[in-house]
Amino acid sequence: MAGAQTNQRFKVLKSAEPTGTVIVMSFEDGREARYLQRRSQMRWSAMQMDLTETLCVSSQAAARCELTLPLVVADGLFIWTKHPEASRLGQEVMYLPGGGQPKQHLVEQQGVHFVSIEEQQRLGSRTLAGLKGRLSCDKFEWLTNVPNVPGRVLPTALSVASWSGETNTSTLETNVAENQAVNGGFDVQLSILNGNTYQIDNATYYTAFAGSPALVSQGPATLVTHDKQGELCQTTFNMSLGKTTQIINELREEIKNVTPVQGPFPIDILTRIEFSMKGIATNAESATFAGAFE
């Protein structure tokens, strides 16, 4: 039966257990598969942000900042728990797209998960261990309008009207690659942690994409805030993800040696299943794919 039927409809079911959730893929023909996951350690990744231009202060207030977000690498697999062929029990569920294409894993392998404002939006206090991102700067005048002098007192809470990140990509309209702001957040709320660091608490709105969290960008980031006169103004930073890329590579190596566990899992960002073969993120959806599941 395996591989014979295409266009199989299935549901991803989550049953809440006292300490977390179990994820089961249930097919109409009675086959079932259970989700196993492996996770790396959580690491803090610091992304360098170098101020290139600000219209918020009249004197040039060059600043060096860091955006620090918790980062985890995780992936998983589905193992057949109910299958008419006994030899398939305990084996990984693979997707067969057909047309001579190779088999695919269901879940993105070694997926990178930043904890960013979108997780706050969706999960609130259940965000990974309650962790939140941070923004540290050697000078905060561009954001706070408080000059960088000894004894300065920074505001305890702030809001960034718009935080946008750029990338070089094409859109369906022109099919021409160009730099463009594609992700970020509105009304990004910050609260002071210490003399040089704000915690990124939340945002009322965010835009993010698979593999591109709200506040992370390869291209420049632009923050719209208020100047001393209360007028909106913008500050632009160059982003550097070198160190982050290194951490990701290390974590990917790390999980190669981790044995997948079958849960129950804490209900956090990592319990969202992303089916890599179609790039669809789905949590508790039924779906149909043109290929077959083996």
């Binding site: 718009s162 702001a181 509105f186 009322t204």
Partner: peptide, 9 residues
């Protein structure tokens, strides 16, 4: 200014 990638409130 406040709507780089989507429409801001």
């Amino acid at each position: 200014l406040t709507s780089p990638f989507a429409l801001s409130a």
